[in-house]
Design a binder for these strands. Structure first.
Lengths: 200, 200
DNA sequence: CGCGGGTTTGATGATGCTCAAGCCCGGTGG
DNA sequence: CCACCGGGCTTGAGCATCATCAAACCCGCG
């Protein structure tokens, strides 16, 4: 339970160096919270009050289109952040939903705490800069994949880029993330496994 | 020519406040450069040495897929940054191409200057944090659009979200950005105009 | 005038979607 | 311990959307 901060520390120290004292101080800004599978962290139309750092389990953000279909934008497993950034920043109603795909533990950071944290320990300014920057690189890649690749290639791309995600999540979540239907994913996997067995 | 720094200043001051002196100092880190239409700022396989801030004209970053087709990832007009961030950060060969779609003027910031700038004027740490953060919001939106919308809806989304981009760029660039073919875009526009004329 | 890039139009086709049914399997309750 | 239920995955048939390929057209520019 208290080792959730170990996960945070491990993650932060990949980007900035903190003294014991600084880290201790930083932890006071976060609120630990547990989520059961299927529980919501945020619903469309609510205002997003927190950025969440996942220390255990897995959450996702998604939208629901006009035909009622879900589209996964982000999976966040241990060591990832998740929120509706736009709503968080502006205070406008969220356009994304966030819920837990597994029983999970997160550390919540609200906007006031976020700002105080950056003032109190200016290194965090840097931490978030590097965090967002790295995140941008990933979005570029994903967009490139979605523009350039066929359904099958996108799935292979995902296996290669985030191997642990397809392992632990149901296929239809993966399909949603890739922008294809579960049926297509199923067929495409069959096709791949036939290919594979031919090779060997 | 020298008013390129005015564009920079206008952009920066939306995020942080700089004194005259600080701004004067900051300008010394940038290298102004002109690009003629079709000229490359970066080619795949080269290392990306700069982030470019566009003060005039328009550049794009794009990839070329296995079938030789181009896919536009980013359009950068006045007030936008463009680069191959991954290559820039790691020094690995770029996977994106960047070229000018119009005669353009940019301010180049290389990695050493980038780092010194953030040390010299720590407010820039904040500037880039906010810049990247805002950029993330846009990527989320684009991804959502590409997952949720049909070709026609995506085009309408683009008209609404970036109205000046389709105005000034040829259709086939827009099509590439949206992940559809120029032929489809052409048909879909005809369809929209028929719809529109029926309404009125 | 003629060339070339860009857009339009048409015919055809493939990829991936929809809808519907069946199946597998783990969990729950009788 | 077995029956049943439900979520998730699979399979099939038909279909829609969008891509492909090819040709014609338009128009600005050298």
């Amino acid at each position: 339970m208290e080792r959730c901060f170990d996960v945070l520390r491990a993650h932060i120290s990949k980007k900035i160096d903190l003294t014991e004292e600084e880290f201790a101080r930083c932890t006071t800004f976060f609120i630990p919270k547990q989520f059961r599978k299927k529980q919501f962290l945020l619903r469309e139309e609510e205002v997003c009050r927190h950025q969440a750092f996942v220390t255990k389990g897995c959450l996702r953000s998604y939208t629901i289109d006009t035909k009622g279909k879900e589209h996964v934008l982000v999976f966040a497993v241990e060591g990832w952040w998740i929120s509706d950034m736009h709503s968080y920043l502006t205070g406008e109603p969220a356009t994304y939903n966030i819920d837990a795909l597994e029983d999970s533990e997160v550390l919540l950071l609200n906007k006031a705490a976020d700002e105080r944290l950056c003032l109190d320990i200016p290194k965090f300014e840097r931490y978030f800069r590097l965090l967002y920057r790295g995140s941008l690189v990933s979005w570029l890649r994903r967009t490139d994949a979605s523009l350039s690749l066929s359904a099958e290639e996108k799935y292979l791309w995902m296996l290669q880029t985030y191997p642990n995600i397809p392992q632990r999540l149901p296929d239809h979540q993966i399909a949603s993330y890739l922008g294809i239907t579960p049926e297509s994913l199923s067929r495409l996997r069959k096709h791949l496994s036939r290919k594979k067995s031919l090779e060997s």
